[in-house]
Structures are given as C-alpha cells and as structure tokens.
Amino acid sequence: MQRIPQQLIPLIIMIVAIIGSLITARTLLVPDSFGDLGHYRADNTGEVAALELSYAGAHVCADCHDDISETKRDSHHSGVACESCHGPALAHTEAPDEFIPDAPRGRDGCLLCHGYNPARPSGFPQILPGQHNPTKACLICHAPHDPQLPHTAEDCSACHREISNRKQVSHHSSVACTECHKATDEHRASPRIVRAEKPRKAEVCGNCHARGADSSREIPRIDMDTHGGRYICWDCHYPHFPETNL
C-alpha cells in the first residue's frame, strides 16, 4: 500500500484552509444584493436614484409663478428653463420664504449667452458688450421673461454678428445686407419661423459685376454668359468675404 508522503499532509491542510476561508469570506463579506442583476451590487442603483435633487424642473415653477410662466411661454425665451438663470430652486419649492433663488440683475448672466462669440451659431442674437451700452444693466431695456428689442433691429448684426464682422473688413463692406437678402419685419420678429430670403440667381451678383452693369468702375467685371460655367457665383466665391485676387 502506497503511503501519502508526509510533506503533502500540511500542504493539503493549507490548500483546504485557503479554499475554505475564501468560501467563508465570500458568504460573509459579499454584499447581499451583489449579483442579483449582474456583476454588481444591485442595491446601488436604488441608492443612486435616491440621491438629493437640486433642480426642481420648469413645470414646478409654473404652479405658483403662473403669470411669468405664461408670459415666457410665448416669448423668445420660451425654451429657456427658469432655473437656467435663477439657479437650482428645489429648496425654494419646499420652503418658498426661506430659500430665495438667484435673481441675476447684472449683465454677466445675459452675456453668457448673448455676448458676441464667433463660435456661436449664426443667427443667435449677440452683442458686443463693450459697445452695447456698457454701463447699463440689460434689464433696463430688455425684459428677461419676454425679451424684445426696444426697436426693431435696423442692423442685421444684432443676430448675424459673425457675418457682419467679416463683411465689414471685406470689399463688400459698403454693400448693405438688404442689397442681396430680403429680410421682412416678420423675420425680425420671429427669425426662426420666417427666414430671410437668400439670392437664387447669379443676376443678383451681376447687378454690380456684369460687364455692362451700371456700377462703380473699380468693381471687377466678368462675362455673365461664359464665367463659371454651370456653377453659380457663390459656389466659388464667398459673398461676405470675397477674395481680392482671383
């Protein structure tokens, strides 16, 4: 009969002890809900879901501030949530008198969106803070819940600042926007719904650049019939910043 070598006995005992302690540790230390839904502690999902809120959500504000919410609903700021400007306000809904949310009255808050930044999408209303009544608070002229321009924007740059800046330093600086675009009052009032008209035909450029056009002598001329082939002018030339040498 083959006897187990003596040195294997302590080793076997140790292996059993290690595996045993691992199994006991697993039953004792692994959280109860671990593995219920996947390789994680399922209870954590509930814990994260139960975290405290700070922002109440716009519809809650409307419950009490129905007048403001109604005004805002039809305004240019209809898509701006109350808490975008006033900050988190759940505490205010729970204790209206104790916690008063921010009511920004300076210029900084407005400029976060409406200060000129060339990376902003074209058509978004922007001002140059240094030139646009630098000492006045925005509130004096514009009601934040129903922002209106005090007078209809005579200058397209109110919204199309980036294009206007470009054009200003180009050969087209003296050409008015309306020379090529038709911008109705409706467009000024609701710019997203009524779009400004863009030129469709090469003749618009031809008014100045055609061979026989009645315009200043320095303006470069082309033969409208042969120049460009089947391309239309702005396929190659950027009208707001036309190139100097062809």
């Binding site: 700070s54 922002y55 959500g57 716009a58 898509g79 808490e83």
Partner: peptide, 11 residues
C-alpha cells in the same frame, strides 16, 4: 425629470 444639463440648456 430631465437631467440637470438638459433641463437648463437654453437652446
């Protein structure tokens, strides 16, 4: 409710 970032996004 909406995530906070979506809630306050003005555009």
């Amino acid at each position: 409710l909406l995530p906070a970032c979506v809630e306050v996004c003005p555009t």
